[in-house]
Each structure stands twice: as structure tokens, then as C-alpha cells.
Computed example of a mutant assay.
Amino acid sequence: MNLAVNIGEKSYPIILEPGCAQKLPEILQQRFPGKKFVLITNRTIAALYAKLLNSWESQLDLKSFTVPDGEMYKNIETWSSILDFMLGSSLDRTSVAIAFGGGVVGDMTGFAAAVFLRGIDYIQVPTTLLAMVDSSIGGKTAIDHPLGKNLIGAFHPPRLVLVDPQFLDTLSPREFFSGYAELFKHGFVGGREMFKFVQKNHESMLSKNADILLEGIYKSLSVKANIVEQDQFETKGLRALLNLGHTFGHSLERFFNFGDILHGEAVYWGIKCAFETAKQLKLMTPENEATIDSLVSRMKMPNLPGAIDPKKIYEYMFMDKKTESGRLRFIIPVEPGKSVIIPDVPKEVIQSVLSIVFS
């Protein structure tokens, strides 16, 4: 099941196939003959897939570097250590970086590739559901800052994305559930057919029905690829729709110091907040509200690490990169499969939403 992100001369393919990771050396030798490779992964993946990594290293001119695992390490210090390793590895501008891991590894590797020698190619080999359906495609690369999430970064699309669903076999239940939030989110921005697919297959995908989950990953990739093709640099408003739930979610992540709550867990809460905002602003017909609620109400809400402070959550929203000229923008569901951008939602509405959702 192959597809592509068509963005002109920087278009790139997505290979979606169970077991395709075994073919990585062959694929890279065909696409990047004679090149040197540098692979970035985290300690968890390096331990789980040591045999696979050894196989890749035996077939490619490849050096590997391991970083700590977790969002809390997606910072300037870890990113700098990646660059230090790359600078000490005798690479040149034709070398290719490989991001082998989840969203944190993919974001940091992509950003390092964007600036190393003023830019080298890289590929994404995502190992988490979140990275497979969201962060590995689109070309957004970044690191976090103490003041907010993904505030330092660049647009730098990969040259190839290799999605092997078999990596999900070693993913923890919590990480799988967190990653599913991004697939679930696409049901509210990817059109009515995507909404119907998620509505029909929600429980089957959560229970890891292999065929249905594979179809869900493919459909989710297609939704994101289609949006990125139309608004690669998020200048037309369309790509911002992919941030449904993220203004609320990013604030939650910062509130809990980017460590105690996973990104997808925060997105679930963000989707619930966005739906409550739509209700308070009366943006849905009664029929659409009931249809959307029939899916939102089936979300199993993750536990929060502790009590939240609504005033702090609201304050942190203004450090989100989706803010424009000091104004908050929210992505709000209005119809099954359709969301819209709403600027300048009154403060009292947001405070009411936070009180209701987190009471």
C-alpha cells in the first residue's frame, strides 16, 4: 500500500507494508546508491531492535546514535548532541539521516538534518502509531523549549517514509492508545467518509484488528498527505486544521512539564475541549452535534497526572505557535469530518470549557 506526498520537486513516497523494515537496506541502496547514512534512535528502540539494527549496519555504510527516550529530552541539549555526533561521523552534504523511532526521534532528527551542513536528506522509519499516522509526514521538524512545545524548528520534508505496522507489536498499550489519538483526530478533519470509518471501526482499531488498523493507517496517511499537499507551510489555514485539540493539548503538556502526560493523551483532552467549545459557541446544528457526540462520547479519557489549574492552562495557550498577533486560534468541529478555525474565542468561554471538561 504505497502513496505519496506530492509537493513538487520535494515530493516523497510513503511505503506502508507489514515487514517492509526488513527491506530497508535494499530500498536505500536503490534510492541512495553509494551514500553514507547516520541513524538516530532512542534507547528503548535500540534495545528492542538490536538484531535488526545490526543487520542494517552490516549492509549499509551506517553509523548509529542513541538518545534518551521521552518528550522531556526533545530539547536543545539532545538535539545538539545529535549534531555533535553527525559532525564527528565524516558525513558530507550527500549523506542521509535516518529517524528510527517515534515522534520525538523523528522531529529531532529531521531538525538536525535541516541545519546540518545547511541541509541534508533524511528518511523517516516510524515505530509508534502516532509517528506513523501523523508526525513522520508533512516535514514539520522541531524541538521543545521550556516556554512551549515545538517552538524551535523548520519545515524540512523527508525523502522517504517507511511505515511498517509490525513495529506496533512491541508498542506499550499506553503508547498505542496515545498514538491512536491522532488517527481518531483525522475523523474530525478528514471529511465525512473518514468520520464514518472511524465511527464504525473505533473499537476494532483500538483492539488492534490488523486488517482494519492497516486500513485506518492508510486512510489517516491519505488525509494528512492531502492537506499537506494543499498547504505545505501552513500559510493558507488548511493545514492548521490538523491541530484540532492541540491548542488545549499543548498547554496540558507544558503544565505537566512535557513528561507526565503523553502527547496523544493531551490531544484526547484537547478534542473534548474543542467539542465543548463548539457547543458553547453554538456552531453545530442539533443533528451534527448529536452525530459528533456519538463518537466523542466513546473516547476513553486518559487519566491526568494531577489536578490542573485552568488559569495556567489558559495562560500557556498564548505561547502556542498557532497564536497569531497575540490572538488565540482554535480548531473546532462543526460537522462530521469537518472542523473550522475560530479566532478570538472569548476568554470566558474558554474558562467555562476548562471548568466543565476538567471538573
Rank of each mutant, 00 (worst) to 15 (best):
H263M: 13
Q30Y: 07
I82R: 03
V267L: 06
S81L: 11
P173D: 10
L83M: 05
L283V: 10
Y122N: 00
S55H: 15
S325T: 15
A225N: 05
A225P: 01
R118L: 00
G326D: 03
R239P: 05
V296N: 06
V296R: 04
M108W: 01
K219R: 15
L213V: 01
M284T: 13
L91S: 04
L83T: 02
D231K: 02
E71M: 11
R329T: 05
G8D: 15
M72S: 13
S81V: 01
P157K: 07
N243C: 04
S136H: 04
K322P: 05
K347V: 14
F330C: 04
A113E: 02
A278S: 15
F32A: 02
V96A: 09
A131N: 00
Y12M: 02
Q22T: 11
F100E: 07
E234T: 11
E175Y: 11
L283S: 10
P165W: 11
F111D: 00
N6F: 13
D260C: 06
K185S: 01
K208Q: 15
R192F: 13
R118A: 01
G34N: 05
E324A: 14
S64Y: 00
A290T: 12
P158W: 07
H246K: 11
Q232W: 09
D320Q: 06
I15C: 09
N288A: 08
R329A: 03
Y218G: 12
M108V: 01
L241V: 02
K185F: 00
P302W: 05
G179Q: 04
M319P: 01
L171Q: 12
I76E: 14
G216T: 03
V267P: 03
P310V: 06
S207M: 14
G70P: 08
R31I: 04
G259T: 07
S172H: 13
E71W: 10
D84Y: 13
F275Y: 15
Q199K: 14
L206K: 12
P286R: 10
E348V: 10
I341C: 09
Q124G: 05
T141N: 08
D211G: 09
G249E: 08
I123N: 01
Y314G: 06
V349W: 06
I137H: 03
K322I: 04
R298H: 06
F32E: 02
G153W: 11
D309W: 05
S207Y: 10
P305K: 07
E287L: 12
M108L: 12
L162S: 07
K321C: 12
T170W: 05
L171S: 15
K224A: 06
A274M: 08
F358S: 02
R327D: 05
K10P: 03
